[in-house]
């Protein structure tokens, strides 16, 4: 089954990154991606631009609403995601425990509602 990890972190923790910081950050996440790949469970990942660049769109109720900013204004914001393919939630939790973001923020685990092929 496919599981998506939504990585919530405090942007203050990652503010003012130098290019060297950025390289070090990529190395740590690269190691995690490497472990997921080695285990054959990796599907997709992305690292998102900071939350102040978010645009939130809604057509609910028939009127178009465009909001400059995130849907929810919280201290910890959505910073990236991983999609992995593992048999069950136990396995997804084992991998979420290894995700670098879990040590400095929160990882929300959501199973795919699309079923598996």
């Amino acid at each position: 089954m496919r599981y998506t990890f939504l990585l919530y972190t405090d942007p203050a923790d990652l503010a003012d990154m130098t290019p060297a910081d950025w390289e070090a950050e990529k190395e740590v996440y690269g190691a995690y991606i490497g472990a997921l790949n080695e285990a054959g469970v990796f599907v997709d990942t992305d690292w998102l631009q900071p939350v102040h660049t978010a645009t939130t769109l809604s057509l609910k109720g028939g009127t178009k609403q465009v909001q400059d900013g995130p849907f929810a204004d919280t201290k910890e914001t959505l910073g990236g995601f991983f999609v992995i393919d593992v048999p069950d939630l136990d396995a997804a939790m084992a991998w979420a425990e290894k995700c670098p973001a879990v040590k400095v923020g929160k990882v929300e685990i959501r199973a795919s509602a699309m079923g598996s092929e």
């Binding site: 972190t9 923790d13 990652l14 990154m17 070090a24 950050e25 973001a101 040590k103 400095v104």
Partner: peptide
């Protein structure tokens, strides 16, 4: 890097 945790954080 050793603990696989965000270096900046």
């Amino acid at each position: 890097r050793l603990f696989l945790v965000s270096p900046t954080a």
